[in-house]
Each structure stands twice: as structure tokens, then as C-alpha cells.
Amino acid sequence: MTEPADPPRLSNNGPPLDDDPRPWGANGIGTYFEWAAAQKAAFDVPYDIALLRARRAEKLGLTYDEYSLEILERGRFLNAEDAERIAAIKRRRPL
């Protein structure tokens, strides 16, 4: 049995971003389920908070996921004064 190859230097050992036929990639299936559970925990908020975030996101022209990711990644609640950051988020959207 061969040892799995070391991940690339900047890898966080998460699931692959390409179209690998195995959604868990080469790191083993356990990693996939750990990441899936972590993602669910990050977005699993009480209904009232989810509704509040959805309304705020809609007012800013963002999706719920974009707004929530900003909170999770930067710890910031966006508002109308953050027009430059909101524009940067919108530019990252796929065409």
C-alpha cells in the first residue's frame, strides 16, 4: 500500500475544487465528511438570525451565502457604507 502524497504547500487538506470523480479527493473519505460537517455547522444558525441575514443581504444586493461568508471570514456585518467591499464581493461572482 502506498502512502498518500503530501498535499501542496498551501493546501488546507479540504475537498478538491476540481471535478474529481471522488468528491472527497485523494485525502480519504473521512476528510470529506469532516469538512461537510464543519460547513453545515458554520451555516446552521437559528431561524430568526437566518431571516435577519437574508433580509440584510437582499437590501445590499448580495446572496445569503455571500453575506454569511463575509461574517464568517471577516467578522463584519456589512451595511450600506461598505459599498466598496460589496462591489468587490459582486465582482467575484461567476459569470
Rank of each mutant, 00 (worst) to 15 (best):
P94C: 01
G25S: 13
N12H: 07
F43I: 04
S68K: 11
P8V: 05
N27H: 08
S68I: 08
Q39S: 06
G25H: 02
R53C: 01
F77Y: 10
L51Q: 07
D44Q: 10
A37C: 05
E84A: 15
L10G: 01
G30A: 12
E58F: 03
E70G: 05
D18I: 02
A37K: 12
G61F: 01
A83W: 08
P4E: 06
P23F: 11
R93C: 06
F33L: 13
P21E: 13
R55E: 13
D18M: 02
L62G: 02
P21Y: 09
A37H: 06
A80K: 14
S11N: 03
E84I: 08
L60N: 04
S68V: 15
K90S: 01
P94N: 07
P15S: 07
F43L: 14
Y32L: 14
S68M: 15
N12R: 11
P23N: 05
T2Q: 10
P46T: 06
P21M: 07
A88E: 15
A57E: 01
P46G: 12
E73I: 09
A41Q: 12
A41Y: 02
L72Q: 12
A83L: 05
R9M: 04
G25L: 02
Y67G: 01
D18C: 04
R55D: 10
R53D: 06
L17F: 09
A36S: 05
I89A: 04
A42Y: 02
L62V: 06
D82I: 04
K40M: 06
D82A: 08
E58C: 00
W35M: 02
M1G: 15
K40E: 10
W35L: 00
A87E: 15
Y47E: 13
A41N: 05
R92F: 02
W35A: 00
P16I: 04
E66C: 05
I71F: 11
D6T: 09
G25V: 03
A83N: 04
L69D: 15
A26T: 09
A37I: 03
W24N: 03
L51Y: 01
A5T: 08
L72R: 13
W24M: 01
T63Q: 02
I49Y: 02
G30P: 00
G14N: 11
G14A: 14
W24R: 00
L51I: 03
D20Y: 12
T31V: 14
V45L: 15
A80C: 00
E84N: 09
F43D: 03
P94T: 07
N13M: 09
S68L: 15
E70H: 15
I89L: 15
R85S: 01
P94H: 08
P4M: 07
M1R: 08
G61P: 01
A5W: 01
A37L: 13
R76M: 06
R92H: 07
L95D: 11
N27E: 06
L95S: 10
L10R: 06
R55W: 00
F77D: 08
W35S: 00
L52H: 03
N79Y: 05
A38M: 11
A5Q: 10
E58I: 00
E70A: 06
D48M: 05
A50R: 14
P94L: 12
T2L: 12
E84L: 09
K59W: 00
R9T: 07
E34W: 04
I29K: 10
W35Y: 13
S68H: 15
A80T: 11
